[in-house]
Amino acid sequence: MADDRDQAPREGALLVDDDESRERKAKRSRDDDEALADEAANVLEDLLDIMDIDADVHIREDGDRIVLDVRGPEAGRAIGKKGQTLDALQFLLNRIVNRDADEQRHIIVDSGDYRERHDKSLANLAEREAKRAIQSGRTITLQPMSARDRRVIHLSLAKFEGVTTESSGEGMRRRIQIIPTGAPRRSRR
């Protein structure tokens, strides 16, 4: 038979332990993040070096996110056409540093304010096309985009009156459709 008087302090003790272990855990995950950011920065520097791109890697503090910032005279080469090189670097870097991890930690590779500017231009495009969809009363289908870019557009039009957005198509060919609400759906290709 369990004794209540015996149990109460034990519970209390457990709680204290929990707080301490939580603190230790938080501390450890901060240390882990730092180690991961350092490792990722080293791998990215190696890749840039092999590719003969004259640029440095800086670890940027950005809330919970680990962002590696590529800076230097040839940072543009690391971005590439439509950010393709930057995305490929980011993808491979995440595969490499998260290789054996139980918990995946996403690392972002950026160059200056490239990703911010890119997102703004996507939001502008989305708004322009949404207006066009409303004016014409027709569904507008955008170019195929990455999952990340599609998400930026879905979010930017979430509160836009008069249209809804959907994705259609598979894999690399997945595209966003901007559909005017209150009008019969007519696909425009």
Binding site: D87, L89, F91, L92
Partner: peptide, 12 residues
């Protein structure tokens, strides 16, 4: 993964 590596190769 292979596609990302090919993208880097074409950027060389």
């Amino acid at each position: 993964t292979a596609r990302a590596l090919r993208t880097l190769l074409s950027a060389l």
